[in-house]
Design a protein around this nucleic acid. Structure first.
Lengths: 140, 140
DNA sequence: TTGCGTGCAAAGGTTTTGCATGGCA
DNA sequence: TGCCATGCAAAACCTTTGCACGCAA
């Protein structure tokens, strides 16, 4: 758990992250949503506290190419490392937990002697829907 | 091969990229190294031409967390998609080509119906040397 | 000659820093 | 009271854009 003072700003941020642990949150998102909820917190504070939470291991940081940084609360032990799949057509970001990742880490350790602590992967491509749309287009 | 005009700036950039195809190059690197070589090219031009080369498939773009974008010339057909391993201790960036990646793509297609075009992966952890150093430290 | 390429300067956007103020312990 | 947290404003960065000029075809 995070150390230090328990200010209302930090409580607001943490509540918000926990309530949205299934989503990727940007600093902008958090600032806006909290303001709309009538619980405003300055962006500087959000930046600073997010970094702190990442250090403490409660939050995972992730940045997709050319986009602003995303953060996600790590809900207990149910959330594992996961892959990100970004559809280049509709722009949707999928994240999927996948046992394959563990095998991969083991493989990299065995063969390349590198000890992985955390990972960040993004694959760009077509999601199922867009792939289907694309193949229909080609039939025309 | 890249279309369009063959200006001296573009030749300089391409030469430089090919000569450094084993490295990750930032726009800053290229601008500085070319200037030192007595072949200055404006950063704007480098940004624009790099993007172009990425579109043409001659160069791969890659951005590590919190760092500026890196580019790398794709040397013929010998260079495949690869993983990045970043050591959190010494800061070195390793890239390794690995057949496992292809298996993984196949798996993701089979199970999750996502068609991967390109990937970008970074794993953070300890390289062999630093892991050894760390375990020695712990013995003290 | 025509149109694309170039690069300066400036804008844009995100993230960090300085600093005075505020609030928890 | 002491110390850390907060948040405004400004700085720092990286990247993109506007625009006048230059050069390749």
């Amino acid at each position: 758990m995070p150390e230090g003072y328990k200010t209302k700003q930090r409580q607001r941020i943490l509540n918000y992250l926990m309530a949205n642990s299934h989503r990727h949150i940007t600093v902008e998102d958090a600032a806006e949503d909290l303001r709309h909820k009538g619980e405003p917190v300055g962006k500087t504070t959000i930046y600073r506290y997010f970094e702190r939470l990442v250090e403490d291991g409660l939050v995972r940081k992730f940045t997709a190419e050319g986009e602003s940084a995303c953060f996600q609360y790590i809900a207990g032990d149910t959330c594992q490392e996961h892959f990100h799949l970004k559809c280049v057509d509709c722009g949707k970001l999928f994240h999927l937990e996948c046992a394959y990742l563990e095998q991969l880490e083991q493989h990299i350790f065995d063969v390349h002697h590198f000890t992985i602590h955390s990972g960040r992967t993004v694959f760009y491509g077509l999601c199922e829907d867009c792939a289907q749309k694309a193949s229909k287009e080609n039939l025309k």
